[in-house]
């Protein structure tokens, strides 16, 4: 240790970090507290910082019954939609990008570089900047209000391909050579060597893409018109009637807690993979 340990230097980091943790937790804690009170208490501004007695009632009603004023759809159903969307995006992305990266790394064929660049440039085309034309194409393909419409346009992106390409480049050439001598063709090499070695990368990408998929906002907002297709992130927005006292805040906050719980659990439970995925997809 370079630094002398004074009382201040020992205590300061903890003070700063605890303050940081409080700031980070506070909004979520408030939402949790709100999810345990009744509408009247919240509307009168009497909520305070202690949890109330209505937790079970609120969660039950939110999950299985639905709010009265804005959407009749129970949030349980929305969560299912979100789950399906997140899984389809994560799994779909992994599959198509591991295949394309395998083709780009382990083959030489005409237009290989062209294919790589076609994929690469998509890094620069976030959905927000091409939103209406993409919507139009999806609608022309009759994919509005379908899981396919919700997910397929988000499945292709350079991130996964770049990540797998980067990882494949670190697999020693000799492993392919040994496999060739061991009579393994492309399928066997992929199945027996590349896939088992890629498991951590796959898991890391899965964590990141699951969060990405679960948290989608603009795209499902446009693509879903039916209540039954709504995702939870969209659902909550529709519960909040900005100018109005009609908002059932206790249910909105219950929904908020339910909406943030799954991805947060994924991050905390798979922290190592999450950090790996985050750092490597950005590199």
């Amino acid at each position: 240790m370079v630094e002398k340990r004074t009382f201040l230097s020992a205590i300061l980091p903890h003070v700063v970090l605890i303050l940081g943790v409080i700031v980070v937790f506070f909004p979520v804690y408030v939402a949790f507290v709100a999810s345990t009170w009744d509408a009247a208490t919240i509307a009168n501004g009497q909520m305070g910082l202690r949890p109330g007695p209505h937790m079970l009632e609120n969660y039950h009603r939110t999950l299985f019954v639905g709010t009265a004023s804005s959407t009749r759809e129970p949030v349980g159903n929305m969560m299912l939609n979100s789950l399906i969307m997140a899984l389809m995006i994560a799994v779909g992305k992994i599959i198509i990008s591991i295949f394309s990266a395998f083709a780009i790394v382990y083959y030489r064929f005409p237009f290989r570089m062209a294919a790589f660049w076609i994929i690469f440039v998509t890094l620069m085309l976030p959905v927000e900047v091409r939103i209406y034309p993409t919507y139009k194409i999806v609608s022309d393909l009759n994919m509005l209000d379908t899981y396919w419409g919700l997910t397929v346009p988000l499945i292709a992106s350079a991130t996964g391909t770049l990540l797998f390409r980067q990882f494949f480049m670190t697999i020693p050439d000799e492993l392919l050579e040994a496999s060739k001598i061991d009579a393994a063709g492309p399928f066997r090499f992929f199945k027996d060597t590349v896939l088992p070695l890629s498991m951590t990368t796959i898991a890391a990408l899965f964590v990141i893409q699951f969060i990405y998929g679960w948290n989608q906002y603009l795209w499902p907002l446009l693509i879903t018109t039916k209540d039954s297709m709504q995702t939870i992130v969209i659902g909550i927005k529709k519960m909040i009637v900005t100018q109005d006292a009609l908002t059932e805040w206790q249910l909105a906050m219950t929904t908020a807690v339910l909406a943030l719980l799954p991805p947060v659990i994924v991050v905390v439970a798979m922290q190592k993979l999450f950090v790996k995925g985050l750092v490597e997809t950005e590199k």
């Binding site: 020693p172 000799e174 050579e177 040994a178 001598i181 009579a183 060597t193 070695l197």
Partner: peptide, 20 residues
């Protein structure tokens, strides 16, 4: 002839053992 069909075996400098 493909490497697999040459009836040869090879020992690599870095051994190239399948790590998994």
């Amino acid at each position: 002839v493909e490497p697999a069909d040459r009836d040869i075996a090879m020992v690599f400098q870095n051994y190239a053992l399948y790590p998994h």
